[in-house]
Amino acid sequence: MTAFMRIAFTALACLMIAVTSAMSADAHPRKEAETEISYNENANRVEIIHRYRIHDSESTLHRVHGDTSLSIMTDPRAQALFGEYVESRFSISHNGQALPLELVGGEIEDGFVWIYQTTPEMPADGLYVMRSNELMDVHQDQTNIVHVRLHGLNETLIFTRSTPWATFRLDGSDTY
């Protein structure tokens, strides 16, 4: 094999790897959702903003409700069911008492379902326990990433099927 043929063969192999990698990334995106928790001074409330991929949300609704006709894109009933689903699988407690999370609403934008919740101000002292297992009952490889930005704390918590709960403090103290 000539040097030119080896170079051409190597270039072709690299191109094939790049193309198949890109195709597989599009076909099977990672199962991730993100949530941000921050204080809104204007509303004097803590805002909880969840972001889920539409496809993952719909497949979860189909499985949980046994109805493949549910469409988050077009059906207000499906949208409400998904909001209720999120409410049932995301929670925060402070010193053993559940925080009152209020579902404010949701919207569809750029391929994502956004769910909005609020709660009264969260004190800086005490121990918090958070559960975030949305979509995990359907998608085994689901990862939920929660960013907590309160009282000067900027912490990211990662939730998976094996770790659907996390403890944290807002005063910077260790949780253990």
Rank of each mutant, 00 (worst) to 15 (best):
T2Q: 10
M5G: 09
R6M: 13
R6A: 14
A8K: 12
A11K: 04
C14V: 07
M16T: 10
A18Q: 11
A18S: 05
V19H: 10
V19Q: 10
T20E: 03
A22I: 10
A25E: 14
D26R: 15
P29R: 00
P29T: 03
R30I: 07
A33R: 05
E34W: 02
T35V: 14
I37G: 01
S38P: 00
S38W: 01
N42T: 04
V46P: 00
V46L: 01
V46I: 02
I49K: 14
I49N: 09
I49E: 04
H50W: 00
R51Q: 12
Y52S: 01
H62M: 03
H62L: 02
R63Q: 06
G66A: 01
G66K: 04
D67N: 15
D67H: 04
S69L: 10
S69I: 03
L70M: 13
I72W: 08
I72Q: 06
T74V: 01
T74Y: 04
D75T: 08
P76D: 07
R77T: 11
A78R: 10
A80E: 07
L81G: 04
L81F: 03
G83S: 11
E84A: 10
Y85D: 08
E87T: 07
S88N: 14
R89P: 15
F90D: 07
F90E: 09
S91E: 10
H94I: 06
H94G: 12
H94P: 03
N95V: 01
N95E: 11
N95Q: 11
G96A: 02
G96E: 03
G96T: 06
L99Q: 15
L99I: 14
P100E: 12
L101M: 14
L101R: 12
E102S: 14
G106F: 11
E107F: 05
E107Q: 12
I108F: 07
E109L: 14
G111D: 09
F112D: 13
F112E: 13
F112L: 11
V113R: 03
V113F: 09
W114A: 06
W114H: 04
I115F: 02
I115A: 03
T119N: 09
T119W: 08
T119V: 15
T119L: 09
P120R: 00
P120Y: 03
E121R: 15
E121D: 14
E121I: 06
M122K: 12
P123A: 00
P123C: 02
A124N: 01
D125E: 11
D125L: 10
G126T: 02
G126H: 00
L127V: 07
L127K: 08
V129E: 04
R131H: 12
S132F: 15
S132G: 00
N133E: 15
M136P: 10
D137L: 13
D137M: 12
H139I: 07
D141K: 06
D141W: 00
D141M: 08
V146W: 04
V146F: 06
V148H: 00
L150M: 08
H151I: 07
G152T: 12
T156G: 13
L157I: 05
L157S: 04
L157T: 04
F159A: 11
T160A: 02
T160W: 02
S162G: 13
P164L: 05
T167A: 15
G172L: 05
